[in-house]
């Protein structure tokens, strides 16, 4: 259950592009055609699935305060977490290079479709962002970290696929000249992000998060009602009588 929840949450609710704007640069630069977008999206899923669990291990056994205790008692006091940026980015850059070599050796066809995108990915914020969010959200197990990596990759893939498809179609529309290209892409992405916000209530069914909100709303409404008690009552009465007369006329 925990896995399914994290999976859907990472794809839809915490979507990398629409909720946190990670990987925006390549999202905008490579989304002109669906075929290239699919290639880059697949490469992102692939690299996230490798680097997030790897950085989880790194974080758990080397970087966190007290993580070195497996080396012996005297190392338990060390806190290397200030090194996490440099460790994460070094892991990512090395892994990307390694993955490139391995893929080139064993699957030339996959290399041809992913090849040009792999080096780009080392500096894609979505990849480093995945590891940093993994760290700051304190994901508990290696399995969940893998799950988180794959799911955020899929979320990113969906986003770039959708915008590439829209941009292919929008070429036939009459967009104001100054908005053409970058401008309209920004605005469409904004609208898509608003759409994705509606996934927010998906996991909770709108219950858990809605409750405190309604409480405050109710209290506010009551407060306002008390404040405007006298004046409002009169207008309400007037309104009511008007609507009643209207109904009667009908």
């Amino acid at each position: 259950m925990e896995h399914i929840e994290l999976f859907f949450k990472s794809i839809f609710i915490d979507n990398m592009v629409f909720a946190t704007f990670l990987g925006m640069c390549s999202y905008l630069a490579v989304s002109k055609k669906v075929s290239t977008a699919v290639g880059l999206g697949a490469a992102v899923i692939f690299v996230l699935a490798i680097t997030v669990p790897l950085n989880w291990l790194l974080d758990q056994y080397i970087l966190q305060p007290g993580a070195l205790s497996w080396l012996g008692e005297e190392y338990a006091a060390y806190d290397l977490s200030f090194l996490s940026f440099i460790m994460f980015i070094a892991t990512i850059a090395t892994m990307v290079q390694l993955v490139e070599i391995v893929v080139e050796k064993f699957s030339p066809s996959l290399y041809n479709s992913l090849g040009i995108f792999l080096p780009l990915i080392a500096v894609n914020c979505a990849i480093l962002g995945g590891s940093l969010f993994m760290q700051s959200r304190e994901i508990a197990t290696l399995g969940l970290a893998l799950n988180y990596g794959v799911a955020s990759g899929i979320g990113w893939f969906l986003a770039i696929l959708a915008i590439a498809a829209i941009r292919e179609k929008i070429r036939y529309s009459n967009v104001p000249p100054a908005l053409r290209g970058l401008g309209i892409t920004f605005i469409i992405t904004g609208l898509m992000a608003i759409g994705f916000m509606s996934f927010g209530g998906m996991l909770t069914g709108g219950d858990e998060e809605a409750k405190p909100a309604t409480d405050t709303e109710v209290s506010e409404v009551i407060m306002e009602a008390i404040e405007n008690d006298e004046t409002d009552n009169k207008t309400v009465v007037v309104d009511d009588s008007q609507s009643i007369t209207e109904n009667l006329n009908k």
């Binding site: 629409f18 946190t20 892409t185 904004g190 609208l191 608003i194 916000m197």
Partner: peptide, 9 residues
Amino acid sequence: SPMALIVVG
């Protein structure tokens, strides 16, 4: 967050 995109647009 979506409004940031629209403002930049």
